[in-house]
């Protein structure tokens, strides 16, 4: 039986995987796309389709995020507009590289290697950050007060004044946007993991403004990227629609869990999951090189399994906390 042009089993897999990704994104606030493109590559989709569909998924997810945050929105529209110009150029460049590599038969290998590096680096950083996070609370509080921004020392005119931050060189903003755009166009990721620290620590923008501007920026770049990839047949709606349906539900669960469970206790597993994603892509590449099909299955099991474990930990701890609170409530009213 086919629904949306794919078999029912695959549809259920995509919806289920979407729920897991949504829980992780809703809870940790990042990584919505980190596992989608690698999973599609591991499943044997052409690189162009994996990256393009990953970007379309990022677009859909960020639209929902933007709708949820619209009332809280502190957005620096000038920064968002400048970023959009450079991010769009970067996406176009990234897409051109992917299509060129595809015509040379190298896209799969190069993007797999890039993903191993990206997931490994970000995963290792999250693990490192989670181990030191409890010690850093005082430092974080100090950072929140007012930070001049690492890039504010670069006074290359013209300078642009930003909301709640010192002025930043236009060229620095455009360069950051270009790097994020290339990553989005090349790997199908939203780039929030790069944009947020760049805006907060690089430009000195307050966290609330960075969150609002980040989500608007990812929505725009996701939309532009989806359009550019869709032009060359790189967006498969039979992948994106069920993934999005699952992730929108999962994100609500993950967001609700943030009020019940302390992120720091689970963050280390999120980091390990990203490292697991890097291992999975590497395993799959080794399998391809040596003609070992079984390694494809192993790598898919690693990706889906680690997502199940970490999102399962979020849900399990939330339910446990919910029950604990209920017992406390009953005891205090007795």
């Amino acid at each position: 039986m086919e629904v949306l042009g794919i078999g029912l089993a695959l549809l259920v897999l995509f919806v289920g995987f979407g729920v897991l990704i949504g829980i992780l994104f809703g809870f940790f606030g990042m990584g919505g796309s980190f596992l989608v493109t690698p999973a599609l590559i591991v499943m044997g989709y052409p690189t162009r389709v994996a990256v393009g569909s990953g970007l379309a998924f990022v677009f859909g997810t960020s639209v929902i995020g933007a709708l949820r945050h619209r009332s809280l929105g502190q957005v620096d529209y000038k920064l968002a507009a400048l970023m959009t110009v450079s991010v769009t150029a970067g996406i176009e460049a990234g897409k051109t590289v992917v299509l060129t590599l595809e015509s040379m038969g190298l896209a799969d290998t190069v993007i797999s290697v890039a993903y191993v590096g990206l997931l490994g680096l970000v995963g290792a950083f999250v693990v490192y950050d989670s181990r030191g996070s409890s010690d850093d609370e005082d430092a974080d509080a100090a950072d929140d007060e007012e930070s001049p921004g690492l890039f504010s020392g670069i006074r290359l005119p013209p300078m642009v004044s930003l909301m709640g931050a010192p002025s930043v060189s236009l060229w620095v903003i455009l360069t950051v946007g270009l790097v994020v755009g290339v990553l989005a166009g090349f790997l199908g990721v939203g780039g929030g993991f790069l944009l947020m620290p760049a805006m907060m620590y690089g430009f000195g923008v307050p966290a609330a403004v960075a969150v609002g501007t980040d989500i608007l920026q990812i929505t725009i770049s996701g939309g532009v990227g989806s359009f550019l990839y869709a032009q060359s047949g790189g967006v498969d709606l039979s992948i994106v629609a069920p993934l999005l349906a699952g992730s929108a539900l999962g994100a609500r669960i993950g967001t609700a869990a943030t009020s019940l469970v302390d992120e720091d206790g689970i963050k280390i597993y999120f980091g390990l999951m990203l490292v697991g994603g890097a291992v999975a892509v590497a395993v799959r590449q080794v399998g391809n090189n040596y003609g070992l099909d079984v390694l494809n299955t192993v790598s898919l099991v690693i990706i889906v399994g680690s997502a199940v474990l970490v999102s399962g930990a979020v849900v399990y701890n939330s339910v446990r906390e919910l029950r604990h609170r209920r017992v406390e409530q009953q005891q205090s009213s007795a």
Binding site: F59, G60, V63, S226, A230, L244
Partner: peptide, 17 residues
């Protein structure tokens, strides 16, 4: 086709929200 695809993803996202 690309415009329609992006529109469909946008519509689905709003409908899901």
């Amino acid at each position: 086709q690309a415009v329609v695809l992006v529109g469909l993803v946008l519509s689905e996202a709003i409908a899901l929200y």
